[in-house]
Nucleic acid binder design. Structure first.
Lengths: 136, 136
DNA sequence: ACAGTAAATCGTAATCATTCTTATTTACAA
DNA sequence: TTGTAAATAAGAATGATTACGATTTACTGT
């Protein structure tokens, strides 16, 4: 179960256990797709009255730094999902209606022949956008 | 010259000629790389005192709608460059130090075998980030 | 169980990019 | 030259995100 694994990571790295952190992680394990800070805030608002922005963003960034979450920019807003860190490197189809993803197994970096003399390549992004079967 | 071509497009589409529009286009023809709204605002500020945000954003969006500019999200901020619309479909290496780009000729969509049954594919993004030779 | 301490959170203000609104100015067509 | 729609100015509003001082809480060692 991804949730316990993530809680374990937190513990190992010396971060404290809080119910809020568990709930944030539950949200993402349940959701399986890209979600925004305010999606999370809404979810948490049911249980926690007056939850601070600070808490939401601080934890989102912490989790991303610990590779528990990964993020992408979608129309000017950061979207987060559970990290696929352990799996083989891959990319995502992202449904821009529901945010759910589908793995793209291939990575374009393996296919481009072109070289970039004098350039330093640091990272790359490949995403396909559209509608998933459920959102047609 | 790309600039005249762009001014021509504006005229053909029934938009008015203004010196500001010409200067905005000059900025991008000179720059050759991804630039933000505030990069442009700074450039324009020399000539135009109290230039309105509205003018900057309205024209950036207009130019993008007319395919004179193209844009991409880079760390939560929109970046614009002259459109490569006429050229064959391609992607970009983007130097995240100076914003200059290099064409990637291949498109991953031609290489992925995987199909997406029931999915509608609307668009895609492939970008490589790093440092260009000049920014090493 | 208990106290000390650093980490986590709250409450809220600040910031940054962007959009919106109203009044005014301007390019251009008749 | 004049009428009109388009363009702009000035600045307020919005939305996402970050910052910060004050308070609370999880955990460590006793």
């Amino acid at each position: 179960m991804r949730l316990n694994e993530a809680l374990e990571t937190l513990k190992n790295e010396g971060y404290k256990y809080t119910k809020k952190r568990e709930d944030i992680l539950s949200f993402f394990t349940e959701e399986d797709g890209y979600r925004t800070a305010s999606d999370l805030l809404n979810y948490m608002a049911d249980k926690y009255d007056g939850l601070s922005y600070d808490t939401v963003y601080r934890n989102l960034h912490l989790f991303r730094d610990l590779d528990i979450l990964e993020s992408t920019d979608l129309n000017g807003e950061k979207h987060f999902r559970l990290s696929c860190g352990h799996d083989e490197h891959h990319h995502h189809f992202i449904c821009h209606s529901c945010g759910k993803t589908k793995t793209i197994k291939a990575c374009p970096m393996n296919y481009i022949q072109q070289d970039f003399p004098g350039y330093t390549i640091e990272n790359h992004k490949f995403e396909i956008y559209g509608k998933c079967p459920a959102c047609q």
